[in-house]
Each structure stands twice: as C-alpha cells, then as structure tokens.
Design a protein around this nucleic acid. Structure first.
Length: 292
DNA sequence: CTATGAACCTGACAGC
DNA sequence: TGCTGTCAGGTTCATA
C-alpha cells in the first residue's frame, strides 16, 4: 500500500516528532508486529527502553530510526536502529497519551518527556518492526539488498538503465522489483507506465536505451508529484504520522479508473489481472506488444 | 542465476 | 440478516 511518497511523508513526520526524544518504555501488544526481530518481543522492548532516537531515514518503502543508548547500559546491545515496514496497512501515529487505543494498535512507544506517544497500528499485520545494525553506509544490514530509490541522490541512472535492459521479464514486473529500483508499488507502476506511454507487458529487454532513460524520468515525475501532495490514500487506512490522509488519488490517471476515459486520448481504461492483483492501462496510449 | 505463485492477515463490499 | 466470494497499495519463501 504505502509506496515511496507515502513512506517519505511518514518519515518526515517522524523526523519532526521523535528525533532527539528518549524512549521510556515500549509495549508490544501483538507479537506478530515484531516477528522479524530475532530476540522476540521482550528483547525488542527492553533494548529500546532508554534509547534516544537520532533521526528517521528511508530507502524505498523501508523506514528506519537510528538510535543511541547511554554508555554503560546493562542491556547487551549490538543493534543501533529500528526498521519499520508498513506493509499493506501499517500506520505510525503520533498521539496524545489520552487518545483511545486504535482497534489495531500493536506497538506503543512512550517517551521520557511525558509528551505524545508513537503508535504502530496495522490492520493486516503485513507490516512490522525490528532492531538491526547499521552497516558502514549507515543502512540497516537487513535491507542492504534493497536497491536505492530514484529520489536518492546517489541513485545510479546508467546502472539502472543497463540492468533494466538486461531483465528477461515484463516491464511492470521489473518496476516492482525492489532489488532493481525501490519505492515503486502497484499504483505508481501503473501511473508511470501511462505517463511513459509504455505497456507493462512489454519485455524489459526490448527497450532502447533512450526509452529506458525516459521511463526513469517518468518514474521520478510520478513519485515527485505524489510526494508534493503528501502521498496517495484511498481511505482512512493510510494516514501520515500526523494523522492526516494524503489525497493524491484525485490525480491518478489510470489506477482504479477501469471503464473511465483516458485523459489523454479518451479511450476506456482497461483493468487486467496481474500477479493476483490488477493492472490498469490505456489500451490505445499503451499498446501491448503483439502476441502478448 | 531468473521467474513464478502461494502464503501471510483483516476487513470492506457485492451478490445471492 | 448472513453467507460466500472477491478484492485491497507488499514482501518473502518455496518451487520450477
């Protein structure tokens, strides 16, 4: 669900509300939310108690918060960041302590300043939290295999174009492969392909270098436009860290618009089953390859 | 190595 | 009213 623009919106909110604050206690109400943490829920909570959040970072759809601990703490600590993945329905909410618990509140963080608390809420429980070590590049070891995202200043355009053009798979699959380029999900893949006037069914290795380069430009245009509006949200399921819904859905050109007119050529947008979900595209602007 | 499909969950909604 | 089936923005793991 949350793709790069939504996660970046959450990151910015986190950086503002929790940087520099020291965690007093952590309450894990649903162990599934910390299933990826090796030490289990008790270790997760004990390690974070007393930790000071330094900042909030992001790569693709992954968030992490580096933290420091006071010297001499008796907990055996070889971790220095908390990774957050929102999955399909995860939310990080900054709430007053008096606010009623959310229906799917799974983890609560209280701070030693007695101010607002941080809550991890997740209906479908695909999301999760874990503690990890930062590698020398200051990226958590567990997500080092995720490619840089296209808004990262160190993203290598030429390398991406070369790798994309070697993929023996269809274009949309390649855009969704987080080890090739991160941050793109089902919505923005469809929006990008529409903007680029390319069929997602086209073989990735059929793109010329200029077309592949131009496609990367479309990826950035779509992500930046969404980011400027605070990300996409269809309903209350996704809200940013401040509790506000994004509203980019008004700007979607194809996603969820089956049967409606393409805003470029007027043809009816088509929905097609794809990997247990849906793809939306304009059959005229994005002509599928012959035989495909 | 690459490619594909199933599995992991809950809830909303359409249709009967 | 309640049942069943379908769908939902993601990732990982097993299998080909």
């Amino acid at each position: 669900m949350p793709e790069l623009p939504e996660v970046e919106t959450v990151r910015a909110g986190l950086a503002r509300f929790v940087s520099g604050r020291t965690i007093a206690s952590v309450e894990v109400r649903h162990p599934r939310s910390v299933r990826r943490h090796r030490g289990g829920a008790a270790d997760f909570a004990a390690t974070l108690a007393g930790a000071t959040v330094a900042s909030a970072e992001r790569r693709g759809k992954y968030l992490w918060m580096p933290f420091t601990r006071p010297p001499g703490a008796d907990v055996d600590v070889d971790v220095d960041c908390m990774i957050v993945h929102l999955g399909m329905s995860g939310q990080l909410l900054v709430q007053q302590a008096a606010a009623p618990d959310e229906r799917h509140l799974h983890v609560r963080f209280r701070f030693d300043d007695g101010g607002s608390e941080l809550r991890f809420v997740d209906q479908r429980t695909f999301g999760g939290l874990q503690l990890d070590r930062l590698d020398p590049d200051r990226v958590p070891e567990a997500i080092a295999h995720i490619a840089r995202d296209p808004l990262d200043p160190r993203f290598d355009d030429a390398l991406f174009v070369a790798r994309l053009r070697r993929r023996r798979t269809e274009l949309k699959r390649a855009l969704l492969d987080q080890s090739l380029i991160s941050g793109i999900g089902n919505i923005y893949a469809d929006e990008t392909l529409w903007l680029a006037k390319l069929s997602g069914q086209r073989p990735a290795d059929s793109l010329s270098r200029p077309v592949a380069t131009s496609l990367l430009g479309s990826v950035r245009a779509v992500l930046e436009a969404a980011l400027a509006q605070g990300g996409t949200s269809f309903d209350a399921l996704y809200v940013n860290v401040n509790g506000e819904s994004g509203y980019f859905e008004r700007s979607l050109e194809v996603y969820g618009r089956a049967g409606q007119a393409c805003r470029r050529c007027g043809s009816a947008i088509v929905r097609r089953a794809f990997m247990n979900r849906s793809s939306y595209y304009c059959p005229r602007c994005q002509r599928p390859p012959r035989g495909g």
